[in-house]
């Protein structure tokens, strides 16, 4: 039997993890774990998770971790970082937590160029509460609160977070959008986002396009199709702002 390599920074007693089968959260956290290992920051990393499916990661890492409230991970991480600048603070949140209820925290942390790293998982819905519309729900997409499909006339168009954050931040910030379908690129972006904090440059943000088969009510094939064919065209993947130049440190 081949045992898959497990990142050193994973907390083994909490494995197997608690996400649904086919959920993208696990992929993001695997990439993050490997990146924490590679950067050798496990001992001084503070991982903070939002309330949403991200809360299931509260004991995911063998890093000091803290759980916050829905939308409030950003200010908690800002408080920790302001108090102890030597710590590496990673805030982990959903699209509802980051772009809706916590949007004024996100926006203002970006404007102040807070030296925290925030990872936002975009699964186009409120996963934990049973699949309601999120700011990122695509036009026409059916959710529990848009049973006939999201109508932009009534509820506007999906939020493109990295785009607006890139507008608000100075050049020392790092802003990117990754996807769980491109693992190597996801890791590279996470690494850059953490490097940017480690070097003390500024605000770092990575949105990750992710999957939620449970609420999308999709099988494996449909899940991947929705991610690649529906989400990725609407939410272009790439680095929007990087102090490390185009392509960054590959």
């Amino acid at each position: 039997m081949i045992t898959p390599a497990v990142p050193k920074s994973w907390y083994l007693p909490s494995k197997p993890h608690k996400f649904c089968p086919g959920c993208g959260h696990g992929i993001v956290l695997k990439a993050l774990g490997e990146t924490i290992d590679e950067l050798e920051i496990q001992d001084n990393t503070i991982f903070g998770c939002d309330i949403g499916c991200s809360l299931l990661s509260w004991d995911f890492f063998a890093c000091d971790s803290t759980q916050t409230h829905h939308g409030r991970t950003t200010p908690v991480m800002v408080g920790i970082k302001r108090a102890r600048p030597e710590l590496i603070t990673i805030g982990y949140m959903g699209d509802g937590g980051g772009y809706s209820i916590g949007s004024q925290h996100l926006l203002n942390a970006a404007v102040r160029n807070e030296k925290v790293t925030l990872i936002l998982v975009n699964n186009t819905n409120y996963g934990m509460t049973g699949g309601q519309m999120a700011p990122t729900t695509l036009p026409g997409q059916k959710t529990e609160t848009t049973p006939y499909g999201r109508d932009p006339e009534l509820t506007g168009y999906p939020t493109r977070g990295p785009e607006f954050l890139a507008e608000l931040t100075p050049d020392s910030a790092y802003i990117a959008r990754a996807t769980v379908s491109k693992y190597k690129q996801l890791k590279r972006f996470l690494r850059n986002a953490l490097r940017n904090q480690i070097e003390g440059n500024g605000f770092s943000f990575v949105e990750v396009l992710s999957t939620c088969p449970t609420n999308w009510r999709t099988n494996a094939q449909q899940t991947w199709r929705f991610l690649e064919d529906e989400m990725e065209p609407y939410f272009p993947v790439g680095e929007l702002k990087s102090p490390f130049g185009k392509g960054g440190d590959k």
């Binding site: 903070g48 803290t66 916050t68 409230h69 409030r72 200010p75 908690v76 991480m77 800002v78 408080g79 920790i80 970082k81 302001r82 108090a83 925290h105």
Partner: peptide, 8 residues
């Protein structure tokens, strides 16, 4: 919440 983070 920033106070909560700082005291933690």
């Amino acid at each position: 919440f920033t106070v909560c983070g700082a005291v933690q």
